[in-house]
Design a protein around this nucleic acid. Structure first.
Length: 465
RNA sequence: GUCGGGAUAACAAAGUGGCCAUGUGGGGGACUGCAGAUCCUCAUACGGGGGUUCAAAUCCCCCUCCCGACCCCA
């Protein structure tokens, strides 16, 4: 079955056809670095990280690029408050961003262009837009994009220009020819950070940096453009206008947007102040738990964040971890001869089918749960072979390359194995003498060291908790 | 106002014409010194109203409610 993607440009699920056989280019709008990132950003990061991982998993060569907006009004305002230079402040938060990326288990993008380091590309793109007749320099030294020059405005939004103009939310600006025109280049106010340009000192408008950086780093056309669905209008709409004004070609073939993370039914956002920092959540949960929380729902659905939701989702994930640990332990002392080939093949097929269906991670996770139930049963019946246990672990590991929700394989079990076995043996003798207090001390003590003992009808099993 | 996306059992969340979703939580049972894990099993669904169909959570129409976008945003 072929990979299908819900394309927001058409509103339909479409078969994915890359521009170039075997390769996929993905650009994801990154963050404005004036503060720590929150769980809403984390969702977007995990979602697109997983999509990139899946493309690699099925054999694509992936070019994944995400940007940093490190020059803008909010950064300038915040820097004025802290007394830092704007670029110092943004550099500091970019460092924090990478720390948080690790707490989310991100593979990472292939390139992270920054607006401040792309001025040449941005200025030349603005010039190209003016040359193409879509931009004009105003008297104040700013450059605007002329929406009236565009014939089919609102392709991504499915909005008509007149409707947007009449929304009453568009600020009037004497320098603009049409109130819907947007800034490509903003003239600097006195004392503000600025760059030299043919139109005087200034800095880029918000939308132009993405268009310019995509063009410079990835080329005129890309396969997939992603971001949060709050960016659809005006940001992505305007990116399309800018790029196509210059290239005359579609910017991206597929537009993919993740749903918003809400708090108590309201969008998590810095301006509302109802956000949970990634750093704080990561202090309490492992990266696998955070990823599982996000991937347990479809990327496009809205999610409501709460501590309770995290706890509930982690309780479910522990079931998979237990199964994984049990399989590892079982493989050391297998007792059956059934290879579970059918169950494992069914899981692989279901995983692929679900992921191919617009990256349905929730459905893919379900396939893992189904295999877990099957192998748990086979282990409890003592029917699973060593090959079956190892194959199941192998299949789980393959899925995990995409999802990143299972603990990474520890390699030091061989070293502690004999020690644990000795303790289990001694505890067994104590239990035989009904010296339960001492036996429990061994079990509790090992638990504190991260080794969990479980008494089963099949003998004592241990695993790393 | 215009344009999107939603409403599934206690909670979370897939599915999209007929067959067991899944996970958490709850009830019962197995195992058991206890604990935990695991297995078996049970219960509770498709916002409301019409329609199409042998058959609708799924298709069509209407209604209600929620979220998002239109200033900044993942």
């Amino acid at each position: 079955m072929a990979l299908t993607i819900h394309n927001n440009l058409t509103g339909k699920k479409e078969k994915f056809v890359p521009l170039e056989e075997g390769r996929v280019s993905i650009y994801v709008c990154g963050v404005t670095v004036y503060d720590d990132i929150h769980m809403g950003h984390a969702r977007s990061m995990v979602v697109f990280d997983t999509i990139a991982r899946y493309f690699r998993h099925i054999g694509y060569e992936v070019n994944h690029v995400t940007n940093f907006t490190d020059v803008d009004d909010k950064i300038i305002d915040r820097a004025a408050q802290t007394g830092e230079a704007p670029l110092e402040l943004s550099a500091r938060y970019i460092e924090e961003y990478f720390k948080d990326s690790e707490s989310l288990g991100l593979v990472g993008a292939d390139a992270y262009p920054k607006a401040s380091e792309s001025m040449g590309d941005i200025i030349s793109m603005v010039s190209d837009i003016i040359d193409a007749g879509f931009g004009y320099a105003a008297e104040d030294g700013s450059v605007y994009f002329s929406v009236d020059r565009v014939e089919d405005y609102g392709r991504l939004t499915n909005q008509r220009l007149e409707d947007l103009e009449s929304s009453g939310r568009i600020a009037q600006d004497p320098h603009k020819r049409n109130p819907m025109d947007f800034a490509l280049w903003k003239a600097a106010k006195p004392g503000e950070i600025s760059w030299d340009s043919p139109w005087g000192k200034g800095r880029p408008g918000w939308h132009i940096e993405c268009s310019a950086m995509i063009r410079a780093v990835m080329g005129d056309r890309i396969d997939i453009h992603g971001g949060g669905n709050d960016l659809i209008f005006p940001h992505h709409e305007n990116e399309i206008l800018q790029t196509e004004a210059v290239t005359g070609e579609p910017l991206a073939n597929y537009w993919v947007h993740n749903g918003m993370l809400q708090v108590k039914g309201e969008k998590m956002s810095k301006s509302v102040g109802n956000f949970f920092r990634v750093r704080d959540v990561a202090a309490r949960y492992r990266k696998e738990e955070i990823r599982f929380y996000f991937l347990n729902a479809h990327y496009s659905s809205p999610m409501v964040y709460s501590e309770e939701a995290m706890e509930e989702s982690s309780a479910g994930l522990r079931r998979l971890w237990n199964n994984h640990g049990d399989l590892v332990a079982y493989a050391r002392k297998p007792s059956g001869d059934y290879d579970a080939a059918e169950e494992i093949a069914a899981m692989r097929a279901a995983f692929r089918k679900q992921m191919d269906d617009d990256f349905n991670t929730r459905g893919a996770i379900e396939a893992l749960f189904n295999l877990a139930r099957a192998t748990n049963r086979l282990m409890s019946e003592g029917r699973l072979s060593q090959k079956g246990a190892l194959d199941a672990l192998g299949a789980m590991a393959e899925c995990n390359e995409v999802l990143g929700i299972l603990p990474e394989a520890g390699g030091d079990e061989g070293d502690i194995g004999p020690l644990v076995d000795l303790l289990i043996e001694i505890r067994g003798e104590l239990r035989g003498m009904k010296a339960y207090a001492l036996a429990d001390r061994i079990r509790d003590g090992l638990a504190d060291l991260g080794i969990v003992l479980e008494d089963t009808s099949d003998g004592v099993k241990w695993k790393k908790g």
